Simulated scan of single mutants.
Amino acid sequence: MLLSDFTWLHFFAIATFLTVLWYTGVLLLFFREEIKGAFGLKPRETKPLKSESPTAHHDPYNVMGETKAPEGMTETYEINFAHPHRRERQLGLVPDFLKEISEIVEITQKENGTKQDLLGMLEELKETYPDITSVENWDSLVVHIKDSSPFPITEDEIKNLFR
């Protein structure tokens, strides 16, 4: 069959048939519930998606929907402030002090320093952190210094050094 064998009547008949078929498929796919309602059939109740809460309202102006929190995060409306001493341990003075201690120990080990070199650097550290002895867990910091030191050093030596 050649293209010249088709008439305009054949073309419009096939185009009309395919158009009706296309829009029937679209109506059945996307407007199923409305068609059932038009014929008096009871539409099925739709369940909300798992990510949506049953009480969530939908704003017609919010095209993209509600924001979703990252996985594992929950919403809370309580504001809890950390205990002041605990917060000081988490942020600021104590972590900075511990970082300085580890750097001093690392420098002493790299340069094959002596115990006197270590004590000298700790003396300089005392000037940087004059209020470190007033921290709630000062005794545990002293134990940490003693344990991380490459040289035998007593807790009394450390406490006397930072007085």
Rank of each mutant, 00 (worst) to 15 (best):
residue 99 K to A: 13
residue 114 T to K: 02
residue 31 F to T: 08
residue 125 L to T: 05
residue 42 K to F: 10
residue 46 T to Y: 00
residue 146 K to P: 01
residue 85 H to Q: 15
residue 23 Y to N: 09
residue 16 T to E: 03
residue 146 K to M: 09
residue 5 D to L: 04
residue 137 N to R: 14
residue 24 T to G: 09
residue 25 G to C: 11
residue 67 T to N: 12
residue 144 H to W: 04
residue 129 Y to I: 04
residue 45 E to R: 12
residue 88 E to R: 15
residue 134 S to F: 13
residue 107 I to L: 02
residue 69 A to W: 08
residue 80 N to V: 14
residue 47 K to H: 03
residue 73 M to A: 04
residue 2 L to P: 01
residue 144 H to V: 10
residue 162 F to D: 00
residue 50 K to R: 12
residue 100 E to A: 14
residue 117 D to C: 00
residue 163 R to P: 00
residue 120 G to A: 14
residue 125 L to V: 02
residue 142 V to K: 05
residue 63 V to T: 06
residue 41 L to K: 15
residue 67 T to P: 13
residue 102 S to E: 13
residue 103 E to I: 11
residue 124 E to C: 05
residue 99 K to I: 09
residue 95 P to T: 10
residue 158 I to H: 05
residue 92 G to W: 06
residue 48 P to Y: 04
residue 120 G to F: 11
residue 73 M to P: 01
residue 138 W to T: 02
residue 151 F to S: 10
residue 24 T to I: 08
residue 53 S to H: 12
residue 115 K to N: 05
residue 68 K to A: 08
residue 33 E to R: 15
residue 52 E to C: 02
residue 46 T to D: 07
residue 60 P to D: 04
residue 14 I to Q: 01
residue 54 P to L: 10
residue 125 L to R: 01
residue 160 N to T: 05
residue 44 R to I: 06
residue 12 F to N: 07
residue 151 F to H: 15
residue 98 L to S: 06
residue 38 A to H: 05
residue 107 I to T: 14
residue 159 K to F: 00
residue 21 L to C: 10
residue 37 G to H: 07
residue 134 S to Q: 15
residue 104 I to E: 00
residue 97 F to H: 02
residue 124 E to P: 03
residue 10 H to N: 13
residue 23 Y to I: 12
residue 34 E to C: 03
residue 41 L to H: 11
residue 21 L to Q: 06
residue 157 E to P: 04
residue 85 H to S: 15
residue 58 H to D: 03
residue 57 H to G: 03
residue 60 P to L: 07
residue 45 E to Y: 03
residue 95 P to Q: 13
residue 129 Y to M: 05
residue 125 L to E: 02
residue 156 D to Y: 03
residue 75 E to F: 14
residue 115 K to T: 08
residue 83 H to Q: 09
residue 141 L to Q: 10
residue 20 V to I: 15
residue 51 S to T: 09
residue 133 T to I: 11
residue 97 F to P: 07
residue 155 E to F: 00
residue 160 N to G: 13
residue 26 V to N: 06
residue 63 V to M: 12
residue 40 G to K: 06
residue 22 W to T: 14
residue 99 K to Q: 15
residue 14 I to V: 11
residue 13 A to S: 15
residue 39 F to W: 07
residue 21 L to H: 12
residue 23 Y to D: 05
residue 11 F to P: 10
residue 162 F to Q: 02
residue 65 G to W: 02
residue 136 E to K: 11
residue 71 E to T: 09
residue 46 T to K: 13
residue 52 E to S: 04
residue 4 S to T: 12
residue 145 I to Q: 04
residue 120 G to Q: 10
residue 5 D to T: 15
